[in-house]
Amino acid sequence: MTDHGPDPYVVNIEEATLANDKYRSTLWTGTNIQLTVMSIPVGDDIGLEVHPDHDQFLRLEQGKGRVQMGPAEDRLDYDKEVEDDWVIFVPAGKWHNVTNIGDEPMKVYAIYGPAHHEHGTVHETKQEAE
């Protein structure tokens, strides 16, 4: 996968998300937003995190997940299950995690505003990303 930003770019996001086998790859990085695709193995998660200055939009293209969010790392009082075609809105400053509770890799794309990862980021695995 290649990061095409900040050049003009169009993509079939469903195909690109489903084809991705990396934990995370940036597809487009601009000044104000960024598109990444993710593949989360069965039983694994995106990883508990917070983005103080970034809103985030995530969409599941494949799989089933458990979304947890809250005001503190140890207070994730928002808890919902999601599946194919569902979206998740993460406000800046909210601790959040998405866990794959299905029986296949969870395929997700995420849009950050503004960009969160360096242009061209590819993380083969969650461990590499950490």
Rank of each mutant, 00 (worst) to 15 (best):
N12D: 15
A16N: 08
R59P: 00
G70Y: 04
R59T: 05
Y78G: 00
V50Y: 04
G30W: 09
E49C: 09
D7P: 00
P41H: 04
D44R: 12
P105H: 02
S39V: 05
S25K: 09
G102D: 07
V90I: 15
T99P: 00
E104A: 14
V98H: 05
P52K: 07
G5P: 04
E104H: 03
V10A: 14
D79M: 01
G70F: 05
G47P: 08
T36K: 06
Q68M: 11
P41D: 10
Y9A: 05
D53Q: 05
E81W: 01
R66Q: 13
G102N: 07
P71Y: 08
E83L: 04
E15R: 13
F89H: 14
K107Y: 00
D84T: 15
G93Y: 03
E15N: 13
R24K: 14
R75W: 08
V82M: 11
V82S: 01
P71S: 13
D85L: 14
M106P: 01
F57G: 01
A72F: 00
P8D: 07
V11A: 14
E81Y: 08
V11F: 09
N12T: 12
D55E: 15
V11R: 13
D53K: 02
E81F: 03
K64Q: 14
K107L: 01
Y78S: 08
I40Q: 07
N20Q: 01
T31Y: 12
L58P: 00
P6G: 00
W28T: 10
N32A: 15
V67Q: 02
V42W: 03
N100V: 02
L58F: 09
L60G: 01
M69Q: 13
P105N: 05
F57D: 03
G30Y: 12
D74W: 07
E14C: 06
